[in-house]
Simulated assay, not measured.
Amino acid sequence: MTFLIFLLACGAAATTGILFQPGAWYEGLRKPGFTPPNWAFPVTWTTLYVLMAWAGARLAGLPGSGMALALWGAQIALNTLWTPVFFGARRMAAGMAIIAILWLVVAALMVEAFRLDLWAGMMILPYLAWLCVAAALNFRIWRLNPGAGQ
Rank of each mutant, 00 (worst) to 15 (best):
Gly17Asp: 08
Gly28Phe: 06
Val106Arg: 00
Ala120Gln: 08
Ile98His: 04
Val85Met: 12
Gly66Lys: 07
Arg30Leu: 12
Gly61Leu: 08
Arg90Asn: 12
Arg90Thr: 12
Gly88Asp: 03
Thr80Asn: 02
Leu131Cys: 02
Phe6Ile: 01
Ala89Asn: 05
Ala107Arg: 00
Arg115Ser: 13
Ala135Asp: 01
Leu51Tyr: 09
Phe20Arg: 06
Ala14Lys: 03
Phe6Cys: 08
Ala60Tyr: 13
Ile99His: 05
Ala93Tyr: 02
Leu71Gly: 07
Ser65Glu: 04
Cys132Trp: 07
Trp39Ala: 15
Met96Gly: 15
Gly23Cys: 08
Leu51Asn: 08
Ser65Met: 02
Pro42Cys: 05
Leu81Val: 13
Ile101Trp: 11
Trp72Thr: 14
Leu81Met: 15
Ala53Leu: 12
Gly88Leu: 09
Trp119His: 11
Leu51Gly: 10
Ala74Phe: 10
Leu59Met: 11
Ala14Pro: 00
Val133Gln: 03
Trp130Tyr: 06
Thr46Glu: 02
Met67Glu: 11
Leu62Ser: 06
Leu144Gln: 08
Leu137Glu: 07
Leu137Lys: 09
Met123Leu: 15
Ile141Ser: 02
Ala120Trp: 05
Ala24Tyr: 05
Gly95Glu: 06
Phe20Ala: 10
Gly11Asp: 05
Trp119Tyr: 13
Leu4His: 02
Phe34Asn: 10
Tyr26Val: 01
Leu69Ser: 07
Trp103Val: 12
Trp54Gln: 10
Gly66Ser: 14
Phe139Ala: 15
Trp82Pro: 09
Phe3Arg: 02
Asn38Met: 12
Phe114Gly: 08
Phe87Met: 14
Gly88Glu: 03
Leu131Gly: 00
Arg30Val: 04
Val85Asp: 09
Leu128Val: 12
Asn138Lys: 08
Arg140Trp: 14
Gly121Met: 08
Tyr127Asn: 01
Ala74Leu: 15
Ala9Phe: 11
Arg115Asn: 14
Phe41Trp: 13
Pro146Asp: 05
Arg90Lys: 15
Arg115His: 13
Gly147Val: 12
Arg30Lys: 15
Cys10Ala: 14
Thr80Phe: 13
Ala77Gly: 11
Glu27Thr: 11
Ala134Pro: 03
Val43Thr: 15
Leu4Ala: 15
Trp142Ser: 10
Leu29Thr: 04
Pro32Gly: 03
Pro126Met: 10
Gly121Cys: 10
Pro84Tyr: 10
Trp72Phe: 15
Leu102Asn: 00
Ala89Gln: 14
Phe86Gly: 04
Ala14Trp: 09
Gly11His: 03
Phe34Ser: 10
Met110Trp: 03
Phe41Met: 07
Ala9Ile: 06
Val111Ala: 13
Ile141Asn: 00
Phe34Lys: 10
Met123Arg: 04
Ile124Trp: 01
Trp82Lys: 09
Glu112Thr: 02
Leu48Tyr: 09
Gly11Val: 06
Asn138Val: 04
Thr35Cys: 02
Gly64Ala: 07
Phe86Met: 13
Gln75Leu: 05
Pro36Asp: 09
Leu78Pro: 03
Pro22Ile: 05
Cys10Tyr: 00
Ser65Ile: 06
Phe34Glu: 11
Leu62Thr: 02
Glu27Arg: 14
Gly56Tyr: 11
Trp45Cys: 06
Ala60Asp: 13
Gln21Leu: 08
Gly61Arg: 05
Leu51His: 07
Gly66Ile: 04
Met52Pro: 07
Ser65Gln: 03
Leu51Asp: 06
Pro37Gln: 14
Leu48Asn: 06
Arg91His: 10
Leu116Asn: 08
Ala94Val: 12
Lys31Met: 02
Gln75Tyr: 05
Val85Ala: 13
Val106Met: 01
